[in-house]
């Protein structure tokens, strides 16, 4: 299972006069966790939307399992890839269970082998929200809601998972929990592409990291190669130290900035 599942070439897109994606090329293979990092406004979410087929780029092409989103059609695409967007607000007081059921009965028309109830329970448990199954999402904290969103995406049982900052609102325990879930998904032969702001999480869990700056991928490869002090300082315009532990884990230490620097 080393086949390429996702193949994006020459993606270019702009909003108004602003170029948000500039000739981006990215691949993803089965069993891989690919992290996309970069400063705010670098085009990470736009890239993810383009990979998902939700945004049609001005130029370039995305192939998921060999076909474009248009060739798949919306319904079958839902069986191929699942997307967790950065913000998702629900104005209606659906319970977590109802929301995850909607992910489960997604449009592909397939029914999970063990039945919907079991698949929903498994997804709720995997995202650590089983105890919130019958609570309305409107009464949940942002972090809890984010995990319900993850459960919904897991229930969709797609082979490609695209997650946009799934850890943004989470406490330390759940940040690591979510990325462990991502790793476990990859271990079953899925491809996980995840936008992350926390560079240490990216270093610890990703097989490959794409560093985006101003719509371009500046560096792409394993964490050791991408997470360099020079590269990160240039990308984030902030002093950053990088350490390599004996066990091979890269840690990133951004310098604290003095109050005088912003005064």
């Amino acid at each position: 299972m080393t086949g390429t599942m996702l193949h994006a070439t020459g993606l270019t897109h702009g909003f108004g006069h602003r170029t948000v994606l500039d000739d981006v090329t990215l691949d993803g293979a089965a069993g891989e966790v690919v992290a996309i990092i970069g400063p705010n406004g670098a085009g990470k979410s736009t890239l993810l939307a383009a990979l998902a087929g939700d945004l049609r780029p001005a130029a370039g092409e995305v192939r998921l399992l060999g076909r474009t989103a248009g060739e798949w059609g919306a319904r079958r695409l839902a069986g191929i890839r699942a997307v967790l967007t950065q913000q998702w607000s629900v104005e209606f007081p659906f319970t977590a269970r109802q929301i995850v059921e909607m992910g489960c009965t997604a449009w592909s028309g397939r029914r999970p082998a063990g039945g919907v109830g079991e698949a929903v329970a498994a997804a709720l448990a995997a995202a650590d929200v089983a105890h919130l199954a019958d609570a309305p999402v409107t009464a949940m904290s942002v972090g809890e809601r984010a995990r319900v969103g993850l459960a919904r995406v897991l229930a969709q049982d797609a082979r490609i998972l695209l997650l946009d900052e799934p850890t943004a609102a989470l406490d330390i325990r759940h940040q690591h929990h979510v990325l462990a879930v991502a790793r476990a998904q990859a271990a079953t032969g899925r491809l996980v592409v995840v936008v992350l702001h926390d560079l240490n999480l990216a270093a610890a869990y990703a097989d490959r990291i794409a560093l985006m700056v101003a719509g371009r991928i500046e560096a792409l490869g394993d964490p050791h190669r991408v997470l360099t002090a020079d590269g990160l300082e240039a990308a984030f315009r902030h002093p950053i130290a990088v350490a390599h532990s004996a066990t091979g884990v890269v840690t990133v230490n951004p310098a604290a900035r003095s109050a005088a620097a912003v005064a």
Partner: peptide
């Protein structure tokens, strides 16, 4: 209609045009 109550992005992800 029900899927879209979760938001456009989520509905699109789940295969709604």
């Amino acid at each position: 209609m029900r899927q879209m109550e979760l938001g456009d992005d989520a509905a699109a992800s789940q295969g709604v045009r």
